[in-house]
């Protein structure tokens, strides 16, 4: 059945970017306040799901040609590599390091290896959620 979903499609084109930006914001907010990779990942995934609802699977895969299994694997590797970095310094696994840096534009900021771990979590969450949704949504 062909439905006329012009309103949904037009708003989605706009809203998707807002959701995506908000998810990035939440992701970085996790540094000191509630938020982080898991919530950010879920938000991004929900944005992509909105795209899937408004358009069909084929259009979205052409627009975002991402293999979500690979994304999951990369996320897992990033997370484990960050945590395993401590092995090379012979300190207990998962020990993180941080320091303060002067960054251009942003001024003095602390950079923390937990951020890398969280990026891994983010990728895993988006990857797993999208794999699940695609595997249900792939056939009608």
């Amino acid at each position: 059945m062909k439905t006329n979903d012009v309103i949904l499609q037009t708003t989605t084109k706009l809203i998707f970017f807002i959701i995506f930006l908000f998810s990035i914001h939440i992701f970085f907010a996790g540094h000191y306040t509630p938020g982080g990779g898991f919530v950010g990942g879920l938000l991004t995934a929900s944005g992509i799901v909105l795209l899937l609802l408004a358009f069909d699977l084929k259009t979205v895969t052409t627009a975002l040609p991402i293999n979500y299994t690979v994304m999951t694997a990369v996320g897992l590797l990033l997370a484990i590599a960050t945590a395993a970095g401590s092995i090379f310094f012979n300190v207990p696994f998962f020990t993180h390091a941080f320091d303060y840096f002067e960054l251009p534009l942003l001024g003095k900021q602390s950079l923390h290896t937990a951020m890398l771990f969280d990026t891994g979590v983010y990728l895993v969450v988006v990857g797993v959620t999208m794999t699940i949704i695609q595997s249900i949504g792939a056939d009608d």
Binding site: F38, V128, T129, I132, S135, I136
Partner: peptide, 17 residues
């Protein structure tokens, strides 16, 4: 709870599929 929620999210999703 956060850990448990993540896990149950994964399991429920798998179960639905």
């Amino acid at each position: 709870i956060l850990t448990a929620i993540v896990i149950s999210f994964g399991v429920t999703a798998f179960f639905l599929v």
